[in-house]
Design a protein around this nucleic acid. Structure first.
Lengths: 230, 230
DNA sequence: TCAAAAGTGTTTCCATTACACCCATGG
DNA sequence: CCATGGGTGTAATGGAAACACTTTTGA
């Protein structure tokens, strides 16, 4: 299939590694596993897999994400490619990292057992194999940038969420406290959320109203020349 | 060399493609070439090359940059990896794009003939092979972001530059006019430039003072907790 | 009734923007 | 002497940050 000229060149194993972010207990977590094969079998690792001939990089990442989360349509974005010669001590492998935002409410805990997976608080990350810690750092940097510029933070929730929870998540992503009134003012004043009648009473007696991201309102917001900013 | 498990997986040709930016005639340009081999021989293309066994991705990009610019230590940054199955019609190739900022004052024009290369104004880009136009768009987006956040704009110059030239470059990158006084105020007030005694008289009778980026001052600037911003 | 979390406005401050005139010099 | 580009300061605006009290309700 390759043109003649191309055949003179070397080929490489190509992997994808996924930094899967989830929100739990007011903290940002990532899904890690014990590496199932040699070398470094049993060490902490990101979720990954090799790219197949019939897949694009995105498709390979989607495959990995589905395998470990059973969620479809997960929000996902490429971080970058990692290609140091000895980054993988088992051989020459070029890896492309992706980060993903998953809804932890719907996470199937039986998967955790099957794949020896665990949600780990990003503030308590263990050493990971190869350059995976670097990948996590790069993913976090990119996540923070994107969250501030685009309405992707809502992908952490299954549609509805309360403003206190949204703020907890925001604080977990940026690892800094933020003023409640300023936060609410900013997000509400964009007029891209719908307040629900229903309340979440799970974390207070009074209960907090649920909100829902309204895509139509967001598109109108953009049409007015406004820019999302958190 | 690869561990047993790895051998079961397919391998891929991996290329690097470089979006080489230069500043000329008050406009941002990129270095393009006529593709030297089939398929699509003769079509406009980015500067690229295949990754070799003994190179990292960065090293492969540096090799390509040196080949076409003869400059060492060029500022360079990865954009992202492109892995659609049919992105290259000659075969399955995964490509990693890099952008680079080169000093056009020192560009060796004999190279242009040798490689059929040409500096093309970014506002007049022709259709490029494969997904190269997409790569350029992504590189430009990233360049704009980085220029606004980090003092990389100075890499377009060979050390010294005038403020009018710097502003012209800034306007070329963002494709928008900007107020002269505000621009100068912002850049000068950071106190990271050294004004020279010498003037550039090439574009006016009065002449414009040269300035030089002062790395020590910039580091002090950072130590004070300040952040570069243009 | 009280503890615990939800909800609500105003003022201060700083960074960005808008804006117009004088200066220096070679031809 | 004048045309051309280089250089300079101040006022207005708008977004970000600081800040404290009232409300609700289950236990």
């Amino acid at each position: 299939m390759n043109a003649d000229y191309y055949l003179e060149n070397p080929t490489f194993l190509v992997a994808v590694d996924c930094i899967i972010f989830g929100f739990k207990d007011k903290e940002l977590h990532i899904l890690l596993t014990r590496r199932p094969m040699e070398p470094l079998k049993g060490e902490w690792s990101l979720m990954g897999g090799f790219v197949e001939d019939n897949e694009s990089l995105n498709e390979a990442a989607e495959k990995v994400l589905f395998r470990y989360t059973q969620q479809k349509g997960v929000y996902m974005e490429q971080v970058k490619a990692y290609g140091e010669i000895n980054r993988d001590i088992g051989g020459r492998v070029i890896s492309v990292a992706f980060y993903a935002l998953v809804r932890l409410e719907e996470f199937d805990t039986s998967l955790a057992a099957k794949y020896d997976a665990r949600w780990v608080n990003i503030r308590e990350l263990p050493p990971l194999v190869f350059d995976h810690n670097q990948m996590v750092n790069d993913a976090l940097t990119l996540l923070r940038y994107k969250v501030s510029m685009q309405p992707i933070i809502f992908h952490f929730f299954d549609k509805k969420f309360t403003l206190p929870a949204l703020q907890d998540l925001y604080e977990a992503i940026y690892q800094m406290p933020i003023d409640k009134r300023n936060f609410r003012k900013k997000i509400v004043s964009m007029n891209i959320l719908d307040k629900q009648e229903e309340k979440d009473k799970s974390s207070s007696k009074r209960g907090a109203y649920y909100y829902v991201f309204n895509k139509k309102k967001y598109e109108a917001f953009l049409r007015e020349g406004k820019r999302f900013s958190l």
